[in-house]
Design a protein around this nucleic acid. Sequence first.
RNA 1: CGGGGCGUGGCGCAGUCUGGUAGCGCGCUUGCCUUGGGCGCAAGAGGUCCCCGGUUCGAAUCCGGGCGCCCCGACCA
Length: 566
Amino acid sequence: MRWTQAFIPTMREAPADAEAPSHQLLLRAGYIRQVAAGLYAHLFLARKSLLKISQIIREEMNRIGAQEFYLPALNPAELWKETGRWDQVDVIFKFKDRNAHDLCLGITHEEEMTNIARQELHSYKQLPQIWYQIQEKFRDEPRPKSGLLRLRQFLMKDSYSFDLDEAGLDVSYQKHYDAYCRIFDRCGLKYQVAEAYSGMMGGSYSHEFMAPTDAGEDLIAVSDCGYAANLEKAQSKAPPVEDPPGEGAPEAFPTPSQKTIEQLVAFTGESPARMIKTLDYMVESKPVVILLRGDHTLSETKLAMALGTGVFRPATPEEAFALHHAHLGSLGPVNLRGVRILADSALAGRRDMMTGANQDDTHLRHVTPGRDFEAEYHDVRVVAEGDLCMRCGKPLRVVKTMELGHVFKLGRKYSEAMGARVLDETGKEVTLVMGSYGIGLERILSAAAEQNHDQDGLFLPRPIAPFEAIITAANMDDAAVREAGEKIYREAQTQAVDALFDDRPERPGVKFKDADLIGAPYRVTVGKKRLEQGMVEIFQRSTRQARPVRLEHAVGALKEELDRGC
RNA sequence: CGGGGCGUGGCGCAGUCUGGUAGCGCGCUUGCCUUGGGCGCAAGAGGUCCCCGGUUCGAAUCCGGGCGCCCCGACCA
């Protein structure tokens, strides 16, 4: 492609709305333009890159025997009512057609795929099946953000596996896991596979493929031993805390206006790890007291697991007062009767701690869990940086990441609800066991941009860069330079190098700046001085290393560099 | 949905408090000049000041209502 014929609207300045580096640079480099919140037009460069990404995905899916489908994005409500998701999922775009028939735009396609499965799969002999598509998905997100990171319409590769039993699902799941690793490897991304929270569907199991980047919106805990998990699910051992040997009974002491842990730390000089934080929740309309170490944070996701229900909310100050006869800031578990008390496991075995006295402006010291109050112990805290790995005991790191893909063992949730059954070899009717597996295509591009940029622009991994190289003729008015550029461009085409020839009559500075911006991993620079020696330059964008090569070897040398991987 | 910010030419912004002919930089067009890091000179084009209503002789500016976008939080099948 010649730049004079390409539509690559680069911008010197990023629109003020863009904050994340990937967002700013994809706009500045002319990849995308915003249409509305969470909706972006993919221009030439974005489309080109996304087509390369989808081709990689397609190849790896096909390699595990998956079959590509293409289903409508527009779907009738009936199927979604069958599984209950019509009412349960609040991000569905719903509307009526001219006949007042309920329709929605697909957020994923479990229902539609399962519908096909139940109509067409009748025998174990037809199993296993893996069906996938690369299709638009629509979600009425409360808050779209960060350019292509959280969109209302986006491209997703979603696949669905249908097996006779769990053992079959394990195989389909593992195939996907391996395919996903190959896909993200081939896309040149740094990523981490993390165990993921799998909701309240017992026995389910999932992994997320996470790209470390500051623009991400998920936190994962990572250990040197290979353990990694989303913070929603991650478990850890809290580093041990030295408690004093004191065996004294709880003793009240005045703490005027000391309400927060922070204030109490300043007031008493004790560390927050020596304090018990008391939180009240209303769980299905009944109060539950939750205890945490002062420096720990409650995980509502884990709380839901521990309680076996998601129906809860923090108690109001009035509800808390009714229970403790004290205001927030002085709550504690000692002498509380007739209420369920749930303590984080990090409190087990501790002694001589400090907590609220259930009397305003008063706290208790010498409080020992198990002696001074009884509680059920559960893991309900969010892993903190520095907590110890449950497996290897080494400190965990907390890393900010972007979710690229998710593989999920669904089990029989959809097949059961929709009656997708086949006959097994004994003639018995069995419900299909399903998995579902997603990849966000725009997120691959965003993550690649986040992981491969500097102030001047992008340098995307070769397999997903819109162009593998840009040929920059420094001065198109110089006949020798122009012709050398043309020659390299022609040869690149012959050699199947996907190159952009910058043949614009611009000043060199403009062309270099644009070349730095748009994400090609290499630049071949043709300039007057070197050309007089019969030389041009191969410039690696990521390292900014330039090396001279003979004009006639330029494309060969470029190919070598490209093939070496970048 | 709660909190905050913003809306003026394609992009970045000033002007709004204190009402009086709509400005600057970049970009764009044309000509000259220049040609290895967004060069210089000159002449131009381009704006419903987010929308609706009100106040006023007069509204980008004041008042009321609405819409849109961004950020933080909540949420995220």
